[in-house]
Simulated scan of single mutants.
Amino acid sequence: MRPRPASWSLDPGDPSPRFIAPIAIDSSNSSGFITGGQYVYTSTKGWGMRSASEWTKAFDLGAGHSATAVAMRDGVGYVSWCGPCNNTGFARGLATNAGGSWHQVSLPGTFPNRYLAGVGIDPGSGQHAYVAVNGFSRRFTEGPGAGVGHIYETKDGGATWTDITANMPDIPANSVKQLANGAVVVGSDLATFYRAPGATTWQVLGTGLPTTTVMDIESGPDGNIYAATHGRGIWSVTPPA
């Protein structure tokens, strides 16, 4: 008889998780995990985790808040949240431990008041990070005043932010990653966009990809970029030389 596959429950019993709770592996250490609901949870046990007790409750995002995206690099994490997440009193925010302990980031008044769908970290510095903003500029469930832009960048751990959307179309952004060479890749509701190292404008990445929502972008060990779409599968793209 074949042995039955083993399974373990790693559910920490969070009071306010999203329907699909975000989870990520530390991009510099495959034993580091990060996830979140109302609370941010981290673990150094990686794939060896066998029980929920092996999560560390790292930070409370606040009652009624739910993590929408997580990222970690060398122990430095960024977690975006919403709560309430619907059009009645919508609120959003961001937490990080860049620079030391976990804390809420004071987002500037010009930062869009829209769903924060993705976070990404510079492979070389935890102080340098990006946020992908969903929705449409000035038009969201809260109406006028929802803010402009889809990709925001910080180089000082969240103290200041710059809108780097530039020539990208006004469409929801879902995922953002910086590659090792400094290029930045964004998955959106329309296409995958690429910003070359040192550039300030974006170009459509690849050819032949379906015009559909790209939910997640990842950089593979083979140097290719992998785009996970809504209903059209996962696509592998070789980045520009």
Rank of each mutant, 00 (worst) to 15 (best):
R50Q: 15
D11S: 10
D11F: 06
S53Y: 05
A95D: 08
Y39I: 02
A52S: 15
N87E: 13
T44S: 14
P5T: 05
P84M: 02
A69N: 11
H65M: 12
L61D: 11
M49G: 06
P5Y: 01
P17M: 09
W55P: 14
Y78T: 05
S30I: 00
L61V: 05
G77T: 04
S31Y: 05
G32K: 07
V70Q: 08
R50H: 11
K57P: 11
D74E: 13
S53Q: 15
A91N: 15
A52L: 09
F59M: 09
G93K: 05
G100T: 06
S43V: 01
Y41Q: 05
A98I: 03
C82S: 13
S16I: 00
A69M: 07
I34V: 15
D60C: 07
P12Y: 04
G32S: 07
N87S: 15
A95W: 08
F59Y: 15
P5G: 04
E54A: 07
C85K: 12
S80T: 14
G83I: 08
T35R: 06
R50V: 12
D14F: 00
L61F: 07
A21Y: 01
S51V: 03
I25L: 03
P12D: 03
P22Y: 00
S7D: 06
S31K: 14
Y41M: 07
S7E: 11
P12M: 06
V76S: 11
I25Y: 01
D14A: 03
T96S: 15
D74G: 14
L10K: 06
V79Q: 11
A21C: 04
G48Q: 14
T42N: 08
N29V: 01
T44D: 12
R73A: 08
P17F: 01
S9A: 12
S66E: 13
S28C: 04
A6T: 02
W81N: 05
S28Y: 02
I25Q: 01
S28I: 00
K57C: 11
G13Y: 00
S53K: 14
A67F: 06
Y41E: 07
R50C: 09
A67K: 10
